[in-house]
């Protein structure tokens, strides 16, 4: 009887976990910036859906764009499975070309998915990060942020509304990104107006995150080979890259994931963390209107 009650409580707890929607330009961005937090949410029972906007055809070494697009799609699904993600939807836009995609075209697709999945939590690339040189992440972040807002408004995309996709406001948003911006933690305004810094302890899921990052083999191979080419061209060497193979690439990914976790943990007691700009209940609702 006790066992049945415990199972019932477990099922109830799982059922209460919010659906999570992740919008990302490329798989490496969300896995490296938010993989640990997502793995923890998945373990608690959240159903996580990932919208992967670009086809990642450019991030490859000695592969045609077609082959790179195919491999990265398969690998993005493998990485997502490791994190506990339920589904990856690849929109297939050509990587590196998002600047010329009409903004509203991308935004409206994202509105569709927000209304369809009705997530309780949304992860999107932070478009306000400075010195992020992958501008696909900026374009995706801008469209995703606008979609978050517009998905809740009745007069956006009335055909969707008429077909049963009702407006939906996502109550919690995590802005993620790589820590390339030296001013990323600067205070800007209060939590009513600006998403605030939020650091999440990922010590318990760091190993899972690392495995997911290592599953992005095509991207990792390209990053590693470009790094080695740069070092060779400037008469330098990295002992760990004497030979490039799965082991040495995975070792580099390990260092990267560990390094990112240390950077995000700075200023906390955590050993490993991820950092976000977070818009939750307090965002847009002044304190006087909130219950303690």
């Amino acid at each position: 009887m006790k066992l049945i009650a415990a199972l019932f409580l477990q099922v109830c707890a799982l059922a209460q976990q919010p659906t999570v929607l992740v919008i990302t330009a490329d798989s490496a961005d969300y896995v490296l910036a938010a993989g640990g937090t997502l793995a923890a949410m998945a373990a608690k029972g959240s159903a996580i859906h990932v919208i992967r906007v670009s086809n990642e055809e450019k991030e490859a070494w000695d592969l045609s764009p077609e082959e790179a697009a195919l491999r990265t799609k398969t690998e993005s699904e493998a990485a997502a499975r490791l994190l506990g993600v339920k589904e990856v939807i690849s929109l297939g836009y050509r990587a590196g070309e998002l600047a010329d995609i009409p903004f509203t075209t991308l935004r409206d697709k994202l509105i569709f998915y927000i209304r369809h999945y009705k997530p309780g939590v949304l992860f999107l690339p932070n478009p306000y990060i400075e010195y992020e040189r992958v501008f696909d992440r900026y374009h995706t972040g801008r469209a995703a942020e606008d979609a978050w807002n517009a998905a809740a408004l009745e007069n956006h995309l009335p055909p969707f509304t008429a077909s049963g996709l009702k407006p939906h406001l996502v109550p919690e948003v995590y802005y993620f990104g790589q820590p390339v911006d030296p001013r990323r933690r600067d205070a800007e305004s209060t939590e009513t107006f600006v998403p605030q810094l939020k650091q999440m302890d990922i010590a318990g899921t760091l190993a899972t995150k690392e495995k997911a990052a290592q599953a992005l083999k095509t991207t990792n191979d390209a990053v590693t080979r470009r790094l080695k080419a740069r070092l060779d061209a400037t008469n330098r060497r990295l002992p760990a890259l004497q030979t490039i193979n799965d082991a040495s690439i995975n070792a580099l990914v390990h260092e990267n994931v560990q390094g990112l976790a240390r950077i995000a943990a700075q200023g906390t007691a955590y050993k490993a963390a991820e950092e976000f700009r977070y818009a939750g209940l307090a965002y847009r609702i002044p304190a006087k209107y909130r219950r303690p």
Partner: peptide, 24 residues
């Protein structure tokens, strides 16, 4: 100026690379 160094785009690896890169 704002100077972007050669490995600034790999923030998680920057320290590791600075420690381990050797001259040939």
């Amino acid at each position: 100026y704002y100077f972007m160094d050669e490995f600034d785009h790999l923030p998680g690896l920057k320290d590791y690379l600075q420690r381990n890169i050797q001259k040939q």
